[in-house]
C-alpha cells in the first residue's frame, strides 16, 4: 500500500479551504499550518503563467526526516505515511532541518508537528480533511498500488510533476499540470 495525493493545479483556485479544514480538523495552533497554498507566477508580461499549488508534507518514500531522527519519533506508518510520535520527540529540530520542503514546524508544546494525511481519518476509511472540503475537487487521495483508487485514476492520463525531485526524497505529492 502506498498512500499518495494528486493536486490538480489547473483546478485549484487558491481559496485556502484546505488550509482551514486542516487547522480545524487537527487543532493546529493559531499562527501555524500543516498545509499551505503557493501561487507561482512565471514568465514575462504579457505571456505569464499562473499556478496554484496546495502543498503539504510529501510523505516521501525516501524520507530524510525519518532517517535523521535520533529517537525514532519520526517514523513511517502504514501506507508510507510519515508521522511523529509526540512523546518520543525531543524537539531537537534535526528533522526540520532535513526536510527540503520545510513541511515541519515546532509545535508550541515542544514536539515537532506536520501533516499526517489525516491518518486518524484514513484509518476509518475517510479521506483527509483537506481533500474532503476542496470545493473544486482538485485534491485526490488514495492508494497508488490500487489502480482504481482516486489518486491512481487522477494521475493516469495526466501530465504531472513532483516538487524538487533532485532532492532525492521521492516525494508522493503529484501535481497535475
Amino acid at each position: 500500500m502506498r498512500y499518495a495525493m494528486a493536486i490538480d493545479t489547473n483546478k485549484c483556485v487558491g481559496c485556502g479551504d484546505c488550509v482551514v479544514a486542516c487547522q480545524t480538523e487537527n487543532n493546529v495552533p493559531h499562527g501555524y499550518c500543516r498545509d499551505w497554498i503557493v501561487e507561482s507566477v512565471d514568465g514575462t508580461y504579457p505571456s505569464l503563467s499562473l499556478e496554484f499549488r496546495s502543498e503539504r508534507c510529501n510523505h516521501c518514500d525516501n524520507s530524510p526526516c525519518v532517517r535523521c531522527c535520533p529517537t525514532g519519533a519520526s517514523h513511517i506508518e502504514e501506507g508510507g505515511i510519515v508521522t511523529v510520535t509526540h512523546n518520543k520527540c525531543i524537539g531537537c529540530g534535526a528533522c526540520i532541518e532535513s526536510c527540503p520542503y520545510d513541511a515541519r514546524y515546532s509545535h508550541p508544546d515542544g514536539y515537532v508537528d506536520k501533516c499526517t494525511f489525516c491518518l486518524h481519518r484514513v484509518q476509518k476509511g475517510q479521506k483527509p480533511a483537506c481533500v474532503e472540503v476542496c470545493p473544486t475537487k482538485c485534491l485526490h487521495f488514495g492508494d497508488l498500488d490500487d489502480p482504481n483508487s482516486d489518486v491512481s485514476l487522477a494521475i493516469k492520463d495526466r501530465k504531472w510533476k513532483v516538487l524538487a525531485p533532485e532532492a532525492g526524497t521521492d516525494p508522493q505529492l503529484y501535481f497535475l499540470t
Binding site: R67, C68, C69, P70, T71, G72, A73, N87, K88, C89, I90, G91, C92, G93, A94, S106, D109, G110, Y111, V112
Partner: peptide, 20 residues
C-alpha cells in the same frame, strides 16, 4: 531541545543513520 522533558529518549535508542 524544545521538548526537554523527553531528553532521555535520546539514550533509549541507537540510530546509526541519525548523526544527532
Amino acid at each position: 531541545l524544545k521538548h526537554k522533558l523527553f531528553f532521555w529518549q535520546l539514550y533509549t535508542t541507537i540510530r546509526l543513520e541519525s548523526p544527532m
